[in-house]
Amino acid sequence: MNENILRRNIARERKNQSMTQEQLAEFSNLTINYLSKIERGVAKRVSADSLFKISHALNISMDSLFTDHITSTYKVYKGPYQRQLDNYFSTLGFDKTEKICKHLLMILELSSNN
Results as ranks from 00 to 15, higher is better:
residue 80 P to D: 06
residue 52 F to M: 08
residue 113 N to C: 14
residue 56 H to D: 10
residue 71 T to I: 14
residue 110 L to A: 10
residue 105 L to V: 13
residue 102 K to G: 06
residue 107 I to D: 11
residue 103 H to I: 12
residue 111 S to E: 14
residue 105 L to E: 11
residue 57 A to N: 05
residue 57 A to C: 08
residue 48 A to C: 07
residue 88 Y to S: 08
residue 37 K to L: 15
residue 11 A to D: 08
residue 96 K to N: 11
residue 95 D to A: 08
residue 10 I to C: 03
residue 43 A to L: 07
residue 51 L to W: 09
residue 86 D to P: 00
residue 23 Q to C: 09
residue 84 Q to K: 08
residue 30 L to S: 12
residue 44 K to F: 03
residue 27 F to C: 04
residue 11 A to V: 04
residue 70 I to N: 06
residue 43 A to E: 13
residue 18 S to M: 07
residue 22 E to S: 11
residue 94 F to C: 02
residue 67 T to L: 05
residue 47 S to A: 13
residue 39 E to N: 04
residue 79 G to A: 14
residue 91 T to K: 09
residue 62 M to A: 11
residue 74 Y to T: 15
residue 114 N to L: 13
residue 59 N to G: 05
residue 28 S to L: 10
residue 12 R to G: 01
residue 16 N to K: 06
residue 20 T to C: 13
residue 1 M to D: 05
residue 61 S to H: 11
residue 10 I to N: 00
residue 60 I to V: 11
residue 17 Q to R: 07
residue 96 K to G: 00
residue 76 V to I: 03
residue 43 A to H: 02
residue 68 D to V: 01
residue 77 Y to I: 08
residue 60 I to H: 02
residue 12 R to M: 14
residue 22 E to D: 11
residue 105 L to R: 05
residue 106 M to F: 10
residue 9 N to Y: 02
residue 112 S to I: 12
residue 32 I to M: 10
residue 106 M to A: 13
residue 90 S to I: 01
residue 108 L to R: 08
residue 75 K to V: 04
residue 99 K to R: 08
residue 37 K to G: 10
residue 92 L to D: 07
residue 65 L to C: 12
residue 6 L to C: 03
residue 7 R to C: 04
residue 91 T to V: 03
residue 47 S to L: 13
residue 66 F to K: 07
residue 88 Y to C: 03
residue 77 Y to K: 06
residue 25 A to Y: 01
residue 9 N to M: 12
residue 67 T to P: 01
residue 29 N to I: 15
residue 105 L to F: 03
residue 53 K to C: 03
residue 87 N to Y: 13
